[in-house]
Design a protein around this nucleic acid. Structure first.
Lengths: 318, 318
DNA sequence: TCGATAGCGGCCACTTTCTGACCTGAATGA
DNA sequence: TCATTCAGGTCAGAAAGTGGCCGCTATCGA
């Protein structure tokens, strides 16, 4: 614990936990002279982490935003928060970052002390559903196990429920994970069937990594996403949707600004746009808005709203 | 870039990105001899990061889970995923980790290159609403700015919309952030009013950190959360809600099982229970269910549903 | 305007460590 | 059995890291 590298790391972590540090205090904590501290700071700067300094009375050091992200030193609670957040992100709450979420999650989970893993597991129950829960969700454990096998080029065994419902045991060389339209797919070379297959992760159970490593084969497709896309017949194509709401843009934005874009038309009206895979979303949005509106597009939405309305009317004895 | 500390860090990051590494390859990448690599590995082990090794043919090194989390070396995309996930977590999708999410978020945002910040901003639009999305939400920028000021003990200025609606400028010594019932509060010492106050973050605008640091005062309360709890009169009491749905329990569970509890009554009917702060949620749930139902409780819900129904009917020209 | 504070960095002498080379040993799997 | 790969001791030379000293500069408050 007494050598330079570890001290430099500790310095980095100190700079991350608190913005300003007087040089003397840092030197004190690291148990070195101020001169050496300056040299340590120089070292960090040479490594590309921009440590800024204020001179004069009340001066000090601080870590600024640089070209690259420094290694993040997080404590236990923060690590749990990271993992939980990433898990949500990986489940597809935000379009476009699923893959990197899983990568980061795998990275963290791999080195995470067991006690923290247990804490995350305990928090699972507390998770409020993020996505409009139509559709099966993938267990985060399965997700990371498979992602890890892909990354580490380790053969994988699991049981798979095929479309018909029958369970089969599989032994594959995992190639890549693909997130497509709220579903996760594993593209892998099936060692029993001697061919490439794609597997839906929500139908995959009990993945266990064998220790066998393998040399990656070349996928006979442009990329993994294309391979999956070819294999599945129907991806739910997102509808785009548009309506005019008879309420000020500001009000509407306050109510549902997060799920839709709101453009002002005039003082009392605004245009609402959103895309969604189901018609439920626009219906909910228009319900929450609490104002009169007209549907511009698509026509199917009108039928859908009418269905809600008749059911609601019937249920309320109207 | 040629010295030991940076190499040790690079080794750590290599071990994080890929599970198995043959010693020779690692040595190659780090441009040192195998002997030195072994010494580097020893160094990591001394620092508490358990690097495991397999001997024999096909052997290699890997980083296992240890007592503490090593500094995380993440790439750009992963960093974005982290930030986005944490932001969701901070908005209260998971009970109990809001505070640590914000802490971690602050840490990351502070050192994050501007280009990544822009990417996160761009992703904001794509975010699916955090669940109980009907209340006012806190802007993530405000949240991190305030959190940073708390952490760094820097005075803060902002404008605040009081209950009446009038805007006032405030100058405070921020003490702590408290997340309570889906809302964020800042506990701070108001320098103009010479007293402790709590501020709702969603009413707080344009926080700017003055560079003035201060010595923390002692809060005249057990802790910050208690202080906030004393100050607010009405925590929105969640309504409990109940309905009978004319559809099989399994079907209903598949559709909205994540947000409500579903009990089977008989083959074709089930009982739906949930609690929510607003009446919008049950309405949405009943809409998504797509089946006939009766509201058991509470009576206000009936009026609410009727309102939706009439608006929908009018809008669809029925 | 001046003085106190605090970061900057050169210089030097001394100490520590790092490094590569070479070696033997031990575990592992074909 | 043998090849492979990690483990770790020893050695000498090279390369750092370290603390103490110095004068310098930026900043702030009196």
């Amino acid at each position: 614990m007494a050598n330079t590298s570890s001290r430099t790391l500790r310095l980095l972590s100190l700079l991350q936990t608190h913005r300003y540090w007087p040089g003397t205090e840092l030197a004190d904590r690291l148990e070195v002279s101020v001169r050496t501290l300056r040299r340590d700071v120089d070292r960090l700067r040479e490594l590309g982490y921009p440590v800024e300094a204020q001179r004069g009375a009340e001066g000090g050091y601080q870590l600024a935003a640089g070209a690259a992200l420094p290694p993040l030193v997080v404590d236990d609670e923060e690590a749990v928060a990271l993992a939980v957040g990433l898990r949500m992100a990986a489940q597809g709450s935000v379009a476009g970052i699923e893959e990197s979420s899983v990568r980061a999650l795998t990275k963290i989970v791999q080195v995470m002390p067991p006690r923290l893993r247990r804490r995350i597991e305990a928090l699972r129950a507390a998770t409020v559903p993020t996505v409009w829960g139509t559709g099966p969700t993938v267990d985060a454990g399965v997700l990371t196990a498979v992602a890890q096998a892909c990354r580490d080029e380790e053969r994988l065994r699991f049981s798979y429920k095929a479309r018909g419902g029958e369970l089969t045991d599989r032994h594959v060389e995992p190639h890549r994970l693909v997130s497509l339209g709220r579903r996760w797919y594993l593209v892998a070379y099936d060692l029993t069937r001697h061919d490439w297959r794609s597997f839906r992760l929500d139908r995959l159970d009990g993945p266990r990594s064998t220790a066998e490593r393998f040399r990656p084969r070349e996928l006979p497709a442009e990329d993994a996403a294309a391979f999956v896309r070819n294999g599945i017949d129907n991806i739910a194509a997102p509808h785009s949707f548009e309506a005019v709401v008879h309420a000020p843009a500001g009000t509407v934005r306050g109510l549902i600004g997060q799920w839709a874009t709101v453009e002002e038309i005039d003082e009392g009206r605004c245009r609402l746009r959103m895309t969604s895979e189901t018609l439920d979303w626009p219906a909910m949005a228009l319900g929450v808005v609490g104002a009169e509106f007209e549907v511009i597009h698509p026509p199917e939405l009108i039928g859908h709203l009418r269905d809600w309305a008749t059911r609601f009317t019937r249920a309320t004895g109207g």
